[in-house]
Amino acid sequence: MITLSFFTDLFTESFMQRAFLAGIMLGVLAPLIGSIVIIRRLSFIADTLGHFSLVGISLSLFLSYSLGNEIFADKPLFLGIFFSVVGGLLIEIFRRYYKSYKEISMPIVMSLGTAVSAMFFSLSKKTGSLYNYLFGSILTVTDYYIVVIAVTMVVVILLYLLFFRQIISVSFEEGNAKFLGINLNFFQLVFIIVLSVVVSILLEAAGVLLISSMMIIPVAAAMKVGWSFRSTTIISILFSELSVFLGLWGAYSFNIPSGATIVSVNILILIIIAFAKRARLAAAKKRSKQDALPDSRQSL
């Protein structure tokens, strides 16, 4: 049952404030990177990196619970980020190795990540925690996680503003990069590292199975109503924030994983936009037919 105590808790409970803050920041980060991912036709890359990031999470649990190492005991995110970047670099290596079949890189890296993380989860005897990492648990985020998101968001926005021209040029047309003096290989490397970091950060809130949805779906909906790159990006962030807010409310009310509720709202927005656009096109078609009718009568 949807509960209004969500709003009172939002102002009184520190765990709710952390979740809300994390959600708001991720609501900006996810579509900002997601739009570039979509333009570059790399929609499956987030899933792959998420799976590989799990290697770091599971390794942290293994080191903590099986070997007694305390460094990563409550901060599995750090190894998660590290392995996500490793996964990103592996994708880049395989993409260059299979030049004509670049997409092969994704299943290879994803399978490797899934297999290795399954081994470590099993060895650490903490398979119960797998549930949170698969579907997200934004309501349990800690202070250090908020700091990591904040730092990442500032870095990503700075990079976005500083290299906007390069990002857009390369994203829309890789082949034109060298005529603009852009080092494509360096750009790819920086992009894959930033993307890997963002994906592993999203993992805690959205879960490995729903990361790409949080990055892709708001942008997919915005693409249907945006008229320019800027407007599409802004609309996707608005959709994303709306889904984070309503998703958080849903997760709190029904005590279900935040990733699932956020993505469900995202999908709902996408469906509404698709139907609204269809209805608008049908109305426009009808109007133009009606406008044409008197002319055809006259000509008769």
């Binding site: 333009i39 829309f172 082949g175 034109n176 790159f229």
Partner: peptide
């Protein structure tokens, strides 16, 4: 390579489906 301007016959590599205006293409490409 910036000393050479190239305009291909087809723009298959350009990702048209994502909304972007003429002005935006020109503003980010100079």
């Amino acid at each position: 390579w910036t000393e050479i301007g190239y305009v291909p016959q087809k723009f298959d590599d350009f990702n048209y489906e994502f909304p972007i205006t003429v002005s935006e293409i020109l503003s980010v490409s100079k």
